[in-house]
């Protein structure tokens, strides 16, 4: 069988998709589709159900590995080095403590200033045919970074489903609150549920992604299953995980790290090597898997795409 059902948490490190084998397999599947037509592959993909996404069907976009020109962080590192305080504060806690997390069925509540508020199921929000693979840099505020092949849909396409009103100036997100499943929520290191937000124009920027997978597989629990935000020009904590609520509002929403320490974590939190954090100079970062630090880039290298959002703003003040 070409595609097996794989439980991501059961994968031994020896079996983990390397970057080259992942792309080799994908190229092979794409060529299969071209030769045999989509039917045969479709049935194979169905058998693979659980954790494999149907990787032959990604919509084309420009954010490919070739376009970025940087090598991918390994699946092993992306899934075993996580900041997801709902599952513990150590980097290795989420991969251990999120094993039994139930990400299905999943409901997202949509409310606030929009024409179609209500409860949406995962399938109502994510159409498989709309999935794209996007290879983005991911820069944590702690001065480490990765390159991740996300799978998801543009946030804008999802926002459009809800028909936001013109009064809506901000989009707020919330993570699931469930201390039984998320043991980290029993300590009050942050005010739960985890909250994040974007200005409306940031949210509909074409870069913003709602991710449901990595490496062509469903998002592992420790990476924010089943659905998370990815805003690659901002520090990682803005990319909120396991989203259960999306709200449209006129006013800037409260965000978790900002509530915990406003002097350290601003609402915008754009990657900015010129504005240092009290604990980390943001001038450089260590790419996971590399020895030497490298210079950090303004807006994490996405200046062309997002610069216009912040025209005329003092980014030292609005950090």
């Amino acid at each position: 069988m070409l595609i097996k059902t794989i439980k991501i948490n059961d994968i031994k490190s020896s079996e983990i998709t390397s970057e080259s084998s992942y792309y080799a397999r994908r190229d092979f599947l794409i060529s299969l589709t071209a030769i045999g037509g989509g039917i045969a592959l479709g049935s194979l993909a169905l058998e693979s159900k659980a954790k494999d996404l149907k990787i032959s069907e990604f919509k084309e976009n420009k954010w490919t590995k070739e376009y970025l020109g940087e090598s991918l962080t390994s699946f092993d590192d992306i899934t075993n080095y996580n900041n997801f305080y709902e599952f513990g504060t150590r980097k290795t806690d989420p991969s251990k403590n999120a094993k039994d997390f139930k990400s299905k069925p999943w409901t997202i509540i949509v409310d606030g200033l929009c024409g179609n508020p209500g409860r949406y199921s995962y399938d109502q929000i994510i159409r498989t045919s709309n999935l794209e693979e996007r290879v983005y840099r991911f820069r944590c505020v702690e001065a480490w970074s990765m390159v991740v092949p996300w799978v998801g849909v543009p946030l804008k396409s999802v926002i459009n489903l809800f028909n936001p009103l013109s009064k809506a100036k901000y989009v707020a997100f919330e993570t699931l609150l469930d201390p039984k499943q998320m043991p980290g929520q029993k300590s009050n290191i942050l005010e739960w549920p985890y909250r994040e937000g974007l200005r409306f124009d940031e949210a509909i920027n074409p870069l913003a992604l709602l991710a449901v997978g990595i490496y062509g597989k469903e998002l592992p629990n420790q990476n924010g299953a089943p659905i998370r935000l990815v805003v690659p020009w901002k520090y990682g904590f803005k990319s909120i995980k396991s989203i259960v609520r999306i709200s449209f509002s006129e006013h800037e929403p409260q965000t978790s790290w900002n509530m915990a320490s406003a002097s350290e974590y601003g609402f915008y939190s754009n990657v900015n090597p010129e504005v240092s954090h009290p604990r980390w100079s943001q001038k450089k970062e260590r790419r996971i898997g590399e020895f030497f630090k490298q210079p950090s880039l303004m807006f994490n290298g996405y200046q062309n795409e997002v610069e216009s959002l912040y025209e005329g703003m003092n980014l030292r003040k609005f950090f």
Partner: peptide, 9 residues
């Protein structure tokens, strides 16, 4: 090789 993703840290 057991120091994880960020062996220096």
């Amino acid at each position: 090789d057991g120091l994880g993703a960020n062996p220096i840290e």
